[in-house]
């Protein structure tokens, strides 16, 4: 079980993907400007998409780019622009006493627990050899076919539930973002209130 036993291309893809993922993630939590954080988030999402492709999840990699980098991050950027770019979060001021050491300790315990759990269980080693029932994961069009079959047969109820969830989310977002007129709402300027009424 040494690194040289694995193919050089696989190791290279893994190193690239994990570098993108971790650098982007640290960028999200370290930078002050929210726009830069959103750009770092794109780097992380792209790294995760590379890891998806490397593990024969081609369709999910495409969806990752389209939905996350194409829709969710754009939504983030839209809200940042809408609220004002220059509002920066001062990362140096600690609001609560001991918040960061406690957060760091909790996170380290969580990571150590996860890695210990993975190392001591038999999920990682030997599971491939005993899993001979289902067809092996395909790539490309075969991956889309397998995933579509799973989503539209065994997970059909969950799929329909996500349709309902998306409708509810759209209605809720419209309701939240709608500008309603109030007497005590001093933040609204008069022009927009007149336009919307």
């Amino acid at each position: 079980m040494i690194a040289a036993a694995y193919s050089a291309a696989g190791v290279l893809v893994f190193v690239t993907a994990s570098t993108l993922i971790l650098v982007g993630a640290i960028g999200v939590i370290a930078v002050k400007n929210p726009v830069h954080a959103a750009i770092s988030l794109i780097v992380t999402l792209f790294g995760v998409a590379v890891a998806f492709v490397a593990q024969s999840a081609d369709f999910l990699a495409a969806v990752q780019i389209i939905v996350y980098a194409g829709a969710i991050v754009v939504l983030f950027l839209f809200v940042i622009m809408f609220l004002g770019v220059d509002r920066r979060d001062d990362v140096r001021v600690e609001a609560l006493v001991g918040q960061r050491p406690l957060a760091l300790a909790g996170v380290l315990i969580t990571i150590a627990g996860l890695i210990t759990l993975m190392a001591r269980s038999h999920w990682v080693t030997g599971a491939t050899s005993v899993s001979t029932t289902g067809a092996p994961l395909a790539t490309g069009q075969g991956n889309v076919r397998q995933l579509g079959t799973a989503v539209f047969t065994t997970d059909l109820f969950a799929f329909e539930a996500t349709a309902v969830l998306l409708i509810i989310a759209v209605v809720g977002a419209v309701l939240l973002a709608r500008r309603e007129r109030r007497v005590d709402d001093t933040f609204d300027d008069e022009r927009n209130v007149e336009v919307s009424s």
């Binding site: 593990q55 024969s56 999840a57 369709f59 999910l60 969806v63 990752q64 939905v67 996350y68 999920w123 990682v124 599971a127 491939t128 899993s131 289902g134 067809a135 092996p136 994961l137 991956n143 397998q146 995933l147 079959t149 799973a150 989503v151 065994t154 997970d155 969950a158 799929f159 996500t162």
Partner: peptide, 16 residues
């Protein structure tokens, strides 16, 4: 990938 089961990918779809 490890278990050769597409259910994990379906779960990712729903998480997205």
């Amino acid at each position: 990938r490890t278990l050769s089961d597409v259910a994990g990918q379906a779960s990712v779809f729903f998480v997205m």
